[in-house]
Amino acid sequence: MSALEDVGRDTATFLEYAGGVANLIGESATFIGRLRIRVNETFSQAYLLGVNSWTIVLLTSLFTGMVFSLESAVQAVQYGIGNLVGGVVAFTTARELGPMLTAVVVAGRAGAAIAAEFGSMVVTEQIEALQSLGLSPIRMLVVPRLVALIVMLPILTVFGDIISVLGGMLVANIYANISYDSFLASVRSTLPFGDVVRGLVKSLVFAVIIVAIGSYQGLNTRGGAAGVGKATTGAVVTSIILIFIFNFALSYILFRQNA
């Protein structure tokens, strides 16, 4: 009986969480649809959440491309298919690694920042202050971050894709003597432009996940400083898990024909 109760309670908690996040996304979409967007705040958030993430995206993308090339280039040359390395690196990066890794590092940075900021605002009654002034926290706080990251995450992903391919190209050249021309020719012949675009569609979904989960966790913070820490950790962990799940689902939907 107690196990059943636990399952029931957990199910109710999950449904409440999922409903809350869906409601937050729905309300945000309504404000965006009515163009009730705070433009200056959106630019400010695009800088804070997007532009300020470029170094971390650069480093993770660079080393991911480099290690991928390191693992595949020598063996590919040994099997006489060194001319395919560029294509393999670019193909995997644009479709899977680029969007997912960029989203994961941005979730760690921006998602945590959103949850911590909103959590602190809850604890210091600033969210209630907004409501008491007749202002919606969704419009004032969530919508600018959502619009900012929907714009910035695909840009960061393209940036990460390019850096990853360049890193792979460098290592392939140094480590397996694959020329830059051969590498780039392989990239051009193997990677359809449509795959890059579909990879960016993933980024749009990941941006919504990062902001929605970070905002929901932050706005539902309970308790003091410990509550803020819990909300922040919860936001990062939940976002990353959802990014992996949605990445699989989106790959299945977007790349099914190619597969």
Partner: peptide, 13 residues
């Protein structure tokens, strides 16, 4: 709410 002002305990600025 626009007709009611609220001054919070710690101001909540």
């Amino acid at each position: 709410r626009q007709t009611i002002g609220f001054s919070f305990q710690f101001a909540a600025l």
